[in-house]
Design a protein around this nucleic acid. Sequence first.
DNA 1: CTGAATCCTAAAGGATACTG
DNA 2: CAGTATCCTTTAGGATTCAG
Lengths: 130, 130
Amino acid sequence: MSDRTEQTDAIDKLEVWCAGEEWCPVTTTATLIGKKWHPVIVHRLLEHGPSGFNELKENVDGISSKVLSDSLDDLGEKQLVDREIISEKPVRVRYSLTDHGESLKPVIYAMRDWGLEHITESDDRNSSIV
Amino acid sequence: MSDRTEQTDAIDKLEVWCAGEEWCPVTTTATLIGKKWHPVIVHRLLEHGPSGFNELKENVDGISSKVLSDSLDDLGEKQLVDREIISEKPVRVRYSLTDHGESLKPVIYAMRDWGLEHITESDDRNSSIV
DNA sequence: CTGAATCCTAAAGGATACTG
DNA sequence: CAGTATCCTTTAGGATTCAG
C-alpha cells in the first residue's frame, strides 16, 4: 500500500550515505550491493528467475539460512527484491527481482564478465587479453 | 621481479574463495572490489589518473588515512593498484591502476551509471525511467 | 607528505538448533 | 518449506596519535 513511502525512505538513506561529497554514484551502487552475498543473490535471481527460499539457497551455495534471510531482508528494504507468499500451507514463498533490482543487470553482468575473463587468465596463462 | 609469483598467489586465493561451488565469476569480482571503499578508489584512479596519497584521499573524500592505507594495501596485493615511489625526500608516492585494475573499468562504470540513473529518480520523481 | 601503530566499536558473517 | 533465535568470531571501519 504505502510502498511509495518506503521507497522514499530508502532513497533518503542513500542521500545521507552519500553526503560529505557532491555525492558519488559509484558509492551509491556500492552501498546497495556491496555486501558479501548481494551480488550473487541478484545474479541467481537474474539467471534462474523467481525462486523459493531453499531453491535460492542451493543456487547461491555456501550461504547459511540466517545470512540468506538477512540478505533478502536487506535487499527487500532496498526495493531490489520482492517477496511473495504463494501458498500458505505448506508455506511457499517466491523471491523475485523488482524492476529496480532487474535494472542492476548491467552491473552484475559486468562483474560476471570480469570474473570470467580473469579466472580464465589463470587457467589459460597464454591467452593474450592484453 | 617475481611479480608472476605474486600474481599466481593472488589467483590461488581467489580459487580457494570460490571453492564450494563450480566457482562463481560474480563472487570472484565481488571478492576483489567488495569492500566499502574499493570501488570508489578504483573509480577515482580511473578518473583522475595516477595520484598521490593525499590527493587520492581528497578525491575519495571521507576516508581516513588508515582505511585508505589498508585499502591500498589490499588492492596492491590483488594486483589492481601499483605503488611507485617517485621521490625520496620529501617522500612522494604515486598510486596507479595496473592493467588488471584498469580492466575493471566496465564494472566501475556500470556501477557509476546505475548510481546516476537511480539517484536522479529521487530528484526527478516524475521522470519515467520505467 | 605519506603513511604506520594503536585502540576501539559496530557490524557482518557463520554454526547450530529449533519452530510454524 | 521457510524461516527465527541464539550465540559467537571475525573483520571492517574509524578516531587519534605518532614517525620517517
